[in-house]
Design a protein around this nucleic acid. Structure first.
Lengths: 123, 123
DNA sequence: TCCATACTTCATGAAATAATGAATTGACGC
DNA sequence: GCGTCAATTCATTATTTCATGAAGTATGGA
């Protein structure tokens, strides 16, 4: 992920409706949600929601596929992953001793554990 | 971290100069950098840089302390950590099977390893 | 074919954001 | 105290972003 893509992703997540939509789609999981259901869930108008969803899609954070009359949106975990990696890139690459505490605090929420203390991270 | 704080942080990172400044400060590590040096490194004017740095500070992503005539800015790893947790909160809380692959791809860059396969994450 | 449903796209005006020059504050040396 | 350096704050202008209503596209059923 380059800087431009990261900027686009951060901009996409910096707007209330879009952030909520993204979180909603993560919670919805692989089955996703129809555009109309998203708008209903967020108490927003159809066209406003549509534009915001396309903003998230352009940022690579969600995907869309047509299913009959509906269009199903799904969170794109690869996009989220790329953004997380981008955020950690500098501390991992340039200052690993600063990065380790961050990742060690984040990881436990998903059942991931560390086998390294910060001192071990010289590479 | 609540939604408002997350929005502020994403907005702070959605602007080229601010994103670069933040990355620069992460690379700089605990010793930080003076405001003037940051402006020089980013080829930006002093006042523009100052305003952007205060934006990042308000978002909790960096801190500032005065040292003589200079003001030293440092990245705030706690702020970054909180933002990362916020981003993972929904998949960890609502859809852990979607979250695990993400964290497992991110973690290795900091020497953190997983002891769980996605199947294990029922909690 | 006609109509309704489900979304999207377009054009517009209002509001928020960003960069700039000028003025201001704070710290240091003389 | 005075001048200088380092940085911030202020006021202004240009640009971007956002939500809205109206119009357009695509799908499916009668």
């Amino acid at each position: 992920m380059d800087t431009y893509q990261a900027l686009t992703a951060f901009a996409a997540l910096s707007q209330p409706l879009r952030l909520e939509a993204f979180r909603l789609l993560i919670k919805a999981g692989p089955q996703g949600m129809a555009a109309g259901d998203i708008a209903t869930a967020l108490n927003a108008k159809a066209n406003t929601t549509s534009q915001n969803l396309s903003h998230l899609a352009q940022a690579g954070l969600i995907t869309s596929t047509r299913a009959g009359r509906s269009i199903i949106y799904r969170s794109n975990m690869d996009g989220l992953n790329a953004l997380l990696r981008f955020m950690l890139e500098d501390c991992c690459g340039g200052a690993p001793e600063a990065c380790a505490p961050v990742i060690n605090m984040v990881a436990p929420c998903c059942g991931v554990t560390s086998n390294n203390s910060p001192k071990d991270l010289k590479s």
